[in-house]
Design a protein around this nucleic acid. Sequence first.
RNA 1: GCUUGUGUGGCGGAAUUGGUAGACGCGCACGACUCAAAAUCGUGUGGCUUUAGCCGUGUGGGUUCGAUUCCCACCACGAGCACCA
Length: 795
Amino acid sequence: MYDFKKIEKYWQNYWNKNQTFAAKNGSEKEKYYLLVEFPYPSGAGLHVGHARSYTALDTVARQKRMEGYNVLFPMGWDAFGAPAEQYAIKNHIHPKDAVKENIKTFKAQIEELGISFDWNREFSTTDPEYYKWTQWQFLQFYKHGMAYKAKKNINWCPKCKSGLSNEDAAGGVCERCGTKVVQKEKEQWMLKMSDYAEDLIEGLKDTNFSKRVKLGQINWIGKSEGAEINFEIENEKEKIKVYTTRPDTIYGATFMVIAPEHPIINKLENKIKNMDKVKEYQEFAKTKTEFERTELSKEKTGVKLEGINAINPFTNKSIEIWISDYVMMNYGTGAIMAVPAHDNRDYEFATKFNIKVIKVIEGDTTPYIGEGKYINSDILNGLTNKTEAINKMIEEIKKRKIGDKKINYRLQDWVFSRQRFWGEPIPLVYCEKCGWQPVNEEDLPVLLPDVANYEPTENGESPLAGIDTWVNTVCPKCGAKAKRETDTMPNWAGSSWYFLRYMDPKNDKEFVSKDALNYWGKVDWYDGGMEHTARHLLYARFWNQFLYNIGLVPNKEPIDIRTSHGMILGPDGEKMSKSKGNVINPHDMIEEYGADALRLYEMFIGDYEKDAAWSTNSLKGCKRFLDRLWKIGDKLNDQKGYTKESLAHKTIKKVTNDIKSMKFNTAISALMIMLNEYDEQKTITKDDLRLIVHLLNPFAPHITEEINKKYNLGKPLCESLWPKYDEEKTIDETCEIIFQVNGKLRGKETVNINISKEEMEKIAKENENVKKFIQDKEIVKIIIVPGRLVNIVVK
RNA sequence: GCUUGUGUGGCGGAAUUGGUAGACGCGCACGACUCAAAAUCGUGUGGCUUUAGCCGUGUGGGUUCGAUUCCCACCACGAGCACCA
């Protein structure tokens, strides 16, 4: 047999030595930019899921190169973030050393897979040469008024004295120590992402994302159209503004609910008679975590504001005002008009607290919002069309000057601060006299200092706050004593623009040169995990749209096609995890079966966009295919051309198209069919063999090159042009047609492809079995589809 | 709850614009080789049955000469969002 380890090593060295996969900036060739999500280099090493994504786009990359494109297919490391920091805290080593080690492991594992990355462009988000430009771009946000500081509630672990991301606070407890998470108010840097809500929806039109990815984006942005309406408070000047998508139901608004944090409460504190109860409820709401608010509190809670009432502007009736945590301060106006007859939540609330329910839409089954004839609604009475009613109501609201049409988005501004050590320092300085000042651009990067302790401080500040020599600096504006911002950027920062840096990774004058931007343009195809199609993709698009708006990049949308691969599950069908003991390590598979077999299997496993359970037996099947391919060379004869002309052209066509449409499994299946056919033959030609190894090369690049070399079939495949097919030659001279009687299969026959309809009918009627089914019956109709079938309809 | 996918043999999965359902692979069974096993090779493999046939793509209906494919209703599973007014 063959020594796959030796072969794989040989070709990996060959590609490296010849710089086969180096992309060339400004090449005459047409460009194609393929991108996979750069990994977080964890200590666990490469996952078979990484291998799936990398192999998939590697297959595309290798095909594209053979088709004559200048392909950019880069790789790097997204290495800032909590896990490295925690590892450092535990083991008392600098995160940068831990990251260095992990990158080494990851890179070795990717290299042994034979992925055709252009390693010349490799970088890590933690390289000062890289994060210098992340900081520089943050300053552009700041200088354009897109970054601001605001008080925000964050998840807080009182024991670890640390802010936690929503992921780390899942289930309402600190992931690290299990302590109950509370909400704590903290000043945070924010990016004005909500300004871009509409653009981020609109921009999707300029992309070729799949439907589900687009919907994911739209869903996350959460656009809704409605109206803002002012409700007067009885005997007060103050008004409460509500947001509603159903102003047409206003005649049914029998009470009002405001968020517990609503500012009107403090303003009218001395008018509210039960302020102690209100305060108690506010405290109660505050201690509830996000988790409890959504998961546990199915039962509605709330407190009525005694002593003040609002006026429904259309019924002119006095209505109660309640506070409840089912109304959020951070959406809409933090206040709603409650229409219990036609809103499920309002209905639950009204039922619990015995509040009047007035129906305004006939036939609408409480408690769901619906459509029907308007009743009890004065100016709307008699209408039946929802849109018409809403429009009429908005007109009326405008006329009375009590409100206006309003569009709201769920998308909020991006909380950009982290109280952690292992992130890009935010390059701002606070001066008592001048306030916040950006660090001079020529002083970037603001380097992370070497410190002995990475733990967060007592009051939850980043560990950076404890390093006086680093914190104390001078004001870039006035030169007086000043302090550095000690918050760092979130993990998402570095990954929001890394695809731009690949175009020009060594540039120390600009984040990327104009020439490189103009040449490479958009990412043509970006593949990654489904878990990143919402947030990461949105952040990256937002970041790029901002750069576009200030004239730094040529395209508003940075990515053309986005695809998402399914997960690879353990053999038990469960998500792979150490605790379940179902983890498959790609390195072990490569050791035992070779990189080509692993690659082939991962592409053959099934629908690329769906999850799939691991099966080592199926992997063995792919290995078996490669073993048979290796042996088929024993059958070579001296003849030229293809032994099976139409099979050859058909297979070229199928493999070519299937790779482009990510139907890797059927491409491989076609090649298996081809090999099976070669097996049937006594001998095959060199052209036959060259063709199958050529078509298989993007999937199994090592063994195919080796076979090509072994039998002197031609130039190395990676330096050859992709095979072309002739459409005319994909058609066979004969075809099998079927005979049906009343739509049921009754016979078949192989005929010449050019046979006429009349002849087809004749052959069908002569078929013995068909005769049996049509004798003594009246023929009603005969349907003939050339090259396919004859269907005789009888009565 | 809303949005969105997906339902095909024992398993992963194939099936142009509606036109032979189950390609390809795994598994399994039998056979060859072997003292034996593994590996390899060969044959078979949706179910029920008598060559021929009947039933079969989640369930029920519809359109059609013909439906895995199109339409309607329902069921199940997965994913995303989730008290968003």
